[in-house]
Design a protein around this nucleic acid. Sequence first.
DNA 1: TGGGTCACGGTTTTT
DNA 2: CCGTGACCCA
Length: 678
Amino acid sequence: MLSTLNEAQQIAAKHIDGPLLILAGAGSGKTKTITTRLAYLISIGIDPSSILTLTFTNKAATEMRNRAFALISDISSPPLLATFHKFGLLFLKLNIDKLGRKNNFVIIDTDDKKKILKTIDKEITTSILASEISKFKNSLMSIEDAKQSSPDQYYTRLADIYEKYQNYLEENNLVDFDDLLLLTYHILDKFPELAKQTSQRYQYIMVDEYQDTNELQYKLLQKLCTTHKNLCVVGDDDQSIYGWRGATIKNILNFENNFENTKVIKLENNYRSTNKILQHANLLIEHNRDRIGKKLIGTRSEGNPIRLYESSDENEETRKIADDIKTLISQGVNPSQIAILFRVNALSRALEEGFNKARINYKLIGGMKFYERAEIKDLIAYFRVITNKNDNFSFKRIINKPKRGIGNATIQKVELEAHKEKTSIFSLIELYTPEQLASIVGKKNARTLKVFMASINDLQDTLQEAKMRFIDMFEETFDFKQSFEKAIDGADRIANIDEFYGYVRDFFMQNIDLNLEDFLNEISLESAQDEIEGGSVSMMSIHASKGLEYEHLFVIGLEEGFFPIVGDGSDLEEERRLGYVAFTRAKDQLTLSFVHSRFYKGRRTQLVKSQFLTESGLVKGSLSISKSTAFKKDDMVKHKIFGTGRVISATKAGKEFKLKINFNGTKRDILSNFVEKI
DNA sequence: TGGGTCACGGTTTTT
DNA sequence: CCGTGACCCA
């Protein structure tokens, strides 16, 4: 089992007890190493069910499971391989009652989150609110902490919105993605006995993509390690690309300090890419300051030089790439070994058009996901109401779909009444007599609502008694599909609906003991990579390409403003890491492309080529000086002694910044190297 | 209530 | 450019 590993990989795979940090460069056989370690642990007699492996995507979990199981013959009690969020979900299903909540909660996605926020505050953009609340949660700030974090009106307002939002979630028994981790943490924190038990249950913990964990995930891991220190993390600080989502590179940089007696193993041999590719990737990443420092060492041949495409606009760019791809395919290259990456999803449009014209089969990964389509979300909302009557949020989405004459005014009336009666809208309709209901919304609407309520209850019964008939019953009851018939894109939507019905039926067939609720939970945690399939050329964002590799890789949009994205809120070092991730996806041939102008947001913009081309030694030019991590007004920072605060002003002073920081109302002048950005 | 028109602003990245 | 939301009228 170990014989196919190199020396460093073997040491890592054979490490049993105590904290282990594997710094694994791109293409260094990271997955192979940890799956082998997983198999090794089992092979020496460790109870598989005491091993927990946490990954970033479902796909990674599945792949690791398959690979590990291929190494060992029969496993009676399998190890748990899951994403962090899935783990949280499983934990909450068993334990959320400890927080006084019911375990039929519903997971909401970002879209739902924004809709809720819109009803709370109409002025601040929902995407800002959503990410601010995420930041509060991911840095473990309670509502009280948030309220005191700054006297600035804007922040007290944010904290207020946070509170209302959280109340809304609790009233409707909803959890957002962050809650899956946060509530899990809260429970473990509040019940040390349970934390002990849980930790004892999972004696060996492995974490993949550790560089992309956030503070909350780190704290959670600490809880899981209360009774032991058998934590093995794998990551690459140079590939940390989720800072905007709260991931902190500090987790990996400080791992050795956080866990005593950590064994560190570096995997620097790259088995994926040609030397040429590695050489330029190394050159690029060396411009970063915040890194542990390592170099990828090639093990393959020198390889072809990296190609640089210069085009006047996106159409010319697409044409060149389409021509190349056609040639490759005619030479016998498997289309699934070809991919095009971009920093900004919007760039896929021109590609899609061009590929359609050129008749190239492609698959766009990420972007608008199947479950995000309006008609599918409607169905999900229906199913949620059927599984959980108290889900007002979903109820409101579907009460008038298909149209049954219930408008905003009516919804508001029943919602207000339900609020008064301290119950959900659905229960109100159930409890009130037709007369009572009519006195609020009128006779006609009262009738409609009662009929709707009865239909949902009937479907609930069907689900209990004959779940295979459920979908048919559902269609019979609501004529949902038909309501799309006259829409412009009706055929597409109906096709989507049929596909979705197929999924549900299939799920029921495959999982006789599972119900609709399980199905809903399952699909809410699917990720972009889960949709990858063979047989066609792939195009995706660089973020979505994490962990993947292709023989022939194109990276487009290497222009200032598109890649790297510059300006407010962007982090040049993270952009550079993205560049590094992008380059190192290529095995044999890497082609980089930039244009002179692009059509974007309704306008044509003139562009200059990316500084990354200079930095990676691909074009000659004056090297721009790389900026250190910049601090700016309103950043949240953490000080060892003063705790969490907000930056009031930042002025550059040599390499560092002079900061004025508000710590719970006390303003202090602090130099930036004494605080951490959070 | 529902259908229509019009102005506005925004996506960088996603479990 | 495109999707969303505000506003208006039947």
